[in-house]
Each structure stands twice: as C-alpha cells, then as structure tokens.
Simulated assay, not measured.
Amino acid sequence: MIIFILFSCAPKKTTQGEYIPKGAQKGVASWYGTEFHGRPTASGEIFNMYEYTCAHREYPFGTKLRVVNLQNRKEVTCTVNDRGPFISGRDIDLSYASAKKIDLIGPGTAEVLMEPIGRDMTYVRYVKYTPTSGILTIQVGAFLEIENALRLKQALRLRYDNVYINKAVVKGETFYRVRVGKFKSYDEAYNLAKSMAQEGYKVLITNFVGGKDEF
C-alpha cells in the first residue's frame, strides 16, 4: 500500500508579485540519462531514465515534486529517489523522461518551480543490524563496482560526516562497502541510523572492522 503525506499549498507572494505555493521554491534544473541508466541511485533503486524521477540534495526519498518550467509553464510530477546535482548553481536533476515532458532536453538547464505535493512512505526504511559488540558503524551499501560506491559516498557526504568506503573480499569477490561513522555504543549508532532510514536510506548497523580504505 502506498501512502502519501500532503504538504500545505497556501500561496505566498514574491517581490515581483508572482504567487507561488507555500513550501515551493525556485531553482535551476538540469537532467541526466544514458550515463547513469541501470545504475543504483542513492535510495537503492535502479535508475531508469524513462521513469518520472529526480535527484535533489535535501528532500527525503519518495517526495513527490511538481516541477514547472518557468520559461514555458510546462510541468511534470516526479519522485525524488536520488541525490544531486553536484554541479554548483544547479538545484535539481531530472530524469530524461521528466526533462522531456517540460522541454528541458534541448536547453539543458532552466529555471523551475519545485513544489512538494506529498511523499510515498514506502521509501521509509527499517534499521537492520547484525549481532554486534565493540566499535560499530553504519553500512549503507555494498557494490562490486567502485563507481557505484563512489556515487553513494558523494551523495551521503551532502549531509553526513565520516563517510568512507571499506574494501572487503567475500567468497572470492571484492565488495566496496559504503559506511558512515564509528560508534562506541549501539544507541549512538541507532540514533543516526534511524534518521537515515527515515530519509530513505537502507542502513545496517554492523561491526567496524579494521581501518578505512579511502577512494
């Protein structure tokens, strides 16, 4: 069952006299597609450039955004399932499908209005943990390809400190494990893990093993 939380839509007036919904904000949109198609997003979903999704630095995963191209007034509703953009001066990255619907493909960027209109609460995660003792850490993902681990690390560093990649060989295969923090108690680790799970990250509290490999 998909549950939506609705945000207030009371209008407010800008200095130019234009009314925009309460909670909405202006920004610059760009788009991404082929290069990332089929790769994991920060939420753990596989990016599909033909679905109506987007990347934002702050909105929780599952947030539904109404995005209006202020140059032509065309609009699209897309779901935040990734983090970004990572280029200065840009505020939201639209999937190819989302960008195409508001004629953003050609120009590449445009000023847009972003209005949160609800959230799909199935994106909220539960905190998982393995039998633990001693120093703990929070694992957010494990990948066979270093590029995927680096993208998740970059996304997490928008909001969290002490994000690192740990390299481990399991049954002959090399995994790049993206982890956050080093905690002396379970409660300390759980408090952060719970916040991350509410945001929509898949988190696992586990033992901190050895040093931290930086990539």
Rank of each mutant, 00 (worst) to 15 (best):
R119E: 05
Q71L: 13
M114R: 02
R83H: 01
A110F: 03
E45C: 00
H37K: 15
E58M: 07
P60F: 08
I102Y: 11
I102G: 11
Q71H: 13
T79A: 01
D91V: 04
T63R: 02
D103W: 04
M49I: 13
G62E: 00
T41C: 09
F86R: 06
P107E: 08
E115A: 08
Y126I: 07
N72V: 06
E115F: 12
V112A: 06
Y123H: 11
L65D: 03
Y123K: 06
R57M: 03
H37T: 15
Y96K: 14
V68A: 00
A97Y: 13
F36E: 15
M114Y: 02
C78E: 09
N81F: 06
Y52M: 06
K100W: 02
R119D: 07
F36L: 15
E45Y: 12
G44M: 15
I117D: 01
G106D: 12
I92Y: 00
F36M: 14
G84M: 10
I46A: 07
E58D: 14
D120I: 02
S98A: 15
E51H: 10
T109I: 14
T41K: 09
I102W: 09
P40K: 02
P85M: 02
T109W: 05
T53I: 01
R73M: 15
E58K: 12
T77F: 12
P85A: 07
Y126C: 05
E115S: 05
F61E: 14
E35V: 11
N72M: 05
L104S: 07
R125I: 13
F36A: 15
A99H: 06
F61M: 12
P107N: 10
E58A: 11
I105Y: 12
T34Y: 13
F47V: 00
A97V: 08
E111G: 00
Q71I: 09
R125V: 15
V124H: 09
N72Y: 00
N69Q: 08
M121G: 01
T79D: 01
F47K: 00
F86T: 11
D120Q: 01
R73P: 10
C78N: 10
F36C: 15
E111C: 00
E51C: 10
G89S: 02
T53A: 01
C54T: 05
R119S: 05
G84P: 06
A97F: 03
F86N: 09
S95H: 11
T79E: 03
T63H: 02
Y59L: 14
N48Y: 10
Y59I: 14
T63K: 00
Y123W: 13
N48T: 00
Y50S: 11
F47R: 04
K100M: 01
G38S: 02
R73Y: 14
R57D: 01
I102R: 07
T34Q: 13
T79W: 02
G44I: 03
A42T: 11
E75F: 00
G108F: 13
H56N: 13
R90D: 08
F47T: 02
E35G: 08
R125Q: 15
E35D: 14
T77D: 12
L94C: 06
T122H: 10
Y52E: 09
K74H: 06
F36P: 09
M49Q: 14
E115P: 05
I87P: 02
R83F: 08
E45G: 02
R66V: 14
T63V: 05
Y50F: 10
D103L: 05
G89L: 08
C78M: 11
L65I: 07
E75L: 00
